[in-house]
Write a protein that binds this DNA or RNA. Structure first.
Lengths: 351, 351
DNA sequence: TTGAAAGCGCTAACAA
DNA sequence: TTGTTAGCGCTTTCAA
């Protein structure tokens, strides 16, 4: 049985191969390969003929085969600790926009909820050898992991945080947090609570800490004393914001007049729970966040806005440029942030 | 130059290959292949030795190569019209859970915002031949697309909606919507507005229509008249809910005492905008949605809950079972929904 | 239990 | 401009 008839037998099952197209067009596979990829060295007539036949036959190249031959998969990996949080889904959208435009695929590696599966992910067949570059979202990477990645020498950039020795794209977290706290101070608050992101989990590396430090230093600089009993921890979820508010308000002692939350999702949790408890925002409590979540405008949340989608889009563009041969395309860049004052903040009443 | 030395030269760049492991272990590549995949026909001693060496060398199989050899990529595709909407990010989480557990990869095909890029996606190298199965989220597929997919004969299931000739998993949309409307009627409402999902876009196939029909039929059955001027269209976003409320409230004429929204995100838009306009919920307006979005509990939104993550997880499990040889694993199933009464609905005051 | 060898479908020199 | 050919790294009979 010849190779061709052999394939023809299977053609119903698997797809049409390059040989089928070549045979039908009466040319070699090399020519088909050039034609379908838009490479030069194919006469217009031949190309047209081949393209027509390829379309008729419904030919589409096997990514495994071309991947094997070229060492490139035309796929980039996106590594995220979650996908259903605002920052990550926004980033995904942004990355995908760029990838889509450049005809690249996107492989998602979600670590959410999997806990220690993380190790598995890095050791198993998953990440390696099936992507040309890696976009890391808001995650700390261990030394080993970085080593590993560098050894593979695939382009790598992290969005939304800093990882040593890696290019990163994100806002200036210190400045953003400082802007938020300054706004509170500027409008007269002195009793400002903090709802920071937890850094017990390895997923949220230094960003939470930077925001905490900014808060502390802004307070100190303004001659204010951060009170330990007004320092709450959350995990960037709405629910954690609700819980934090409850803890804060059930504690004995004086209440803050404002609260700086390290993320909008937590800030909204505070707002919703305050409402439920009959605490008025902003009359009794001013609330400020960071992010400008999709819901923030509607809720009236004052916040420091950032655009993770644009950050991820830029990061992806760099990755793709680097793959395209433009060495040095991948580099760190600071993304913009800006304070948006809405209705969740106002001067304190009992000032 | 021998093949081996040739590879050795590149070993810094690309990864360690199966030949490297075989050479180091003094066995054939076939044995390494069996050993690392946990296949039988390898002596315990040999296996252990190979595994040790593979680990030392950091060997991980090339997915392109094994994909080419087996015709399987161990990757499933997820096709979604958006990723940052609640339903989709939830589904992604669910699908990923199952995939992760079974050591499969996830390739994301997001059509969001790309408009007509959709065609491109289906014709180009993207979807085909790089996935073993396809999970479609809430999307209508054209006849051609379905044909194409069926011809490839890769397992396919759609979550969150119906596509002719395809297995689907989702709630009973008619019943869910009817339950919502019935709740409103049960507590005494007669003037019930409708905020339905738009189906101008091809992305939201028949689900919106089903919910509209349920609303109409429930109303009629209760002897109530759906008023055309209280029929608003949204696109499942918060903002569209806000706009719908504004339109409804700036219209001359009587106002409804309740509004049934085809999705929580729109319902919350209505609630936030009502608040801003001084319309009290539920005193002046009862609002009900469908979904049980992450924010719904905090907002107090009465809704008909569903779990897209579990739906997608189940769908993925079916896909994987089918790939695993359990023919007939992929089938349609109706997912559960349930009414959750919170504080956004109450009997009308001016009943 | 292990190995040899023939592909999987495509790409990329190198020839023609 | 086009074709020949040798792999890419792995899997999988078939022998040994």
């Amino acid at each position: 049985m010849t190779r061709t008839s052999d394939r023809a037998q299977r053609s119903g099952h698997h797809g049409v191969s390059i040989d089928d197209v070549a045979a039908a067009a009466g040319v070699s596979t090399a020519t088909v390969s050039r034609a379908v990829r838009g490479l030069p060295r194919v006469s217009p007539a031949t190309r047209e003929k081949i393209l027509g036949i390829a379309a008729d036959l419904g030919y589409v190249a096997s990514s495994s085969a071309s991947g094997l031959a070229t060492g490139r998969t035309r796929t980039i990996g996106v590594l995220a600790p979650f996908v259903s949080r605002w920052f990550f889904s926004q980033s995904l959208e942004g990355a995908d926009r760029e990838l889509h435009a450049r005809q690249y695929g996107l492989s998602l590696f979600n670590l959410g909820g999997h806990g220690s599966n993380r190790e598995r992910l890095f050791n198993k067949t998953m990440v390696y050898k099936q992507i040309d570059a890696l976009l890391v979202l808001c995650m700390a990477l261990s030394h080993e992991e970085i080593e590993h990645l560098h050894k593979l020498d695939i382009p790598l950039v992290v969005v939304g945080g800093h990882v040593e020795e890696c290019a990163y794209i994100g806002i200036d977290d210190y400045a953003a947090a400082a802007d938020a706290v300054r706004h509170l101070i500027d409008i007269g608050h002195r009793d400002i609570a903090l709802l920071h992101g937890d850094d017990a989990t390895d997923l949220n590396f230094d960003v939470p800490r930077i925001r905490i430090r900014a808060y502390q230093e802004m307070m100190t600089a303004a001659g204010l004393d951060p009170r330990p009993e007004w320092d709450e921890a959350g995990d960037f979820t709405l629910a954690s914001g609700q819980r934090a508010f409850r803890r804060l308000w059930t504690k004995p002692g004086p209440k803050p007049t404002a609260i700086f939350c390290a993320a909008d999702e937590m800030a909204m949790g505070v707002i919703f729970e305050a409402k439920r408890a009959g605490v008025r925002v902003p009359e009794d409590l001013s609330v400020i966040g960071i992010d400008d979540h999709e819901f923030s405008a509607a809720v009236g949340l004052t916040t420091v806005a950032q655009r993770p989608d644009e950050q991820a889009e830029l990061a992806t563009r760099m990755l793709l440029d680097e793959l395209g041969g433009a060495a040095g395309s991948v580099r760190s860049v600071v993304a913009p942030h800006r304070l948006i004052v809405r209705t969740s903040t106002a001067p304190p009443r009992r000032a």
